[in-house]
Design a protein around this nucleic acid. Sequence first.
DNA 1: GCGATAAAATATACGTTGTAAATTTATAGC
DNA 2: GCTATAAATTTACAACGTATATTTTATCGC
Lengths: 201, 201
Amino acid sequence: MPKPLSTSEIEDFRDKLCDAGLQIFAEKGVEGLTLREVAARLGVSPMTPYRYFKDKDEILAAIRARAFNDFAEAMEAGARRGPDAVARSNAAGEAYIRFALEHAEAYRLMFQVSQKECADDHPLLAKAIERARATMTHHVKQLIAEGVFEGDAELIGHVFWAAIHGLVMLQLSGKFNERYDFDTVRHETFRALTQGFLKRG
Amino acid sequence: MPKPLSTSEIEDFRDKLCDAGLQIFAEKGVEGLTLREVAARLGVSPMTPYRYFKDKDEILAAIRARAFNDFAEAMEAGARRGPDAVARSNAAGEAYIRFALEHAEAYRLMFQVSQKECADDHPLLAKAIERARATMTHHVKQLIAEGVFEGDAELIGHVFWAAIHGLVMLQLSGKFNERYDFDTVRHETFRALTQGFLKRG
DNA sequence: GCGATAAAATATACGTTGTAAATTTATAGC
DNA sequence: GCTATAAATTTACAACGTATATTTTATCGC
């Protein structure tokens, strides 16, 4: 018999499948990702992925996890070198937005849930989400430590997260116009929110 | 020949189809809405809707338009009677959130775009969206008129819109936990944002 | 080396989807 | 009542996810 697949071979295949999946997403959007298409790109038959994943939902969860990791990576990389917490936080925020707009289909997938499947069922996905969340919280903690903000870091982090997410989603669904465009609304949002959390006195 | 369909008959059929569509959405979510299912509920054959709509995308656009109108209606109704602009604005905001969470599938549809179809191609949808936008802007104008806020009403309206949208979408995709739950983050978001737009002096 | 064996991969097939094309049904004017 | 034609239905097809059947393939004892 062919030797049973080693853990690393399984990992490898899954990784390649996620790569191909994200590429298809970027090219053709969510509905373009079919098992037949992704299998074709991997040079295997349409049924082969079923040896590595239970069903399409599990494949989507894996791609989602990968996307969340790429996303956290992008934020962390963007904010790596900066003179102070303010600069690094701004860089992280910009990296967030850049990632979301440049990988629109992946971003959409990341925050889309079919009632059928839930992050709790997919530990790797939950972990990837947690990593992204931690990255965002981290910058708020730094801002508090440097005496810029005051309050509950995680709470403030969620506030900013929701605000950025809303901006990005409205932008992606074309709800802004040229007069009140993304950058204008974003700037005003950040100005107002920041003011609301500044340390007093 | 059977008398050609009158405009009102066409309107009628489209209306009933949107009703059925929204009902299916609420029951089974986005993927539950198939032409065969909606046709069955109308008691017609699966091909009949094609006489009233070009394709499924046009049907979805019609349902979306209907949903946006229901949404605007809900906000307007919620804010109708209130002693002052602050109370009415809060009521509108609450109505927004209530609608979004109670009609989650419809709300998701409203803000979902497949790159294929765009609001510009569907005048009724564009109009419905504009109505919702106007409703939101209206309350900010009132707040400015009463001397609570200062600034560009439409811009501030978009800022609040994006923030609420982000909150709702994160909630719908299960990204909040019990410690930093929807109401907590929402409250803090409104507190901070409001502070950022208050009229000074 | 070499079948036997079982894991991995593929091929086939089915039910469901959107919808094109062919067909049937129903009503207006003559 | 016959016919022309709009409306509706039936039939059919390609593409999808995936269950099941089949084939390929790499390793084992010998």
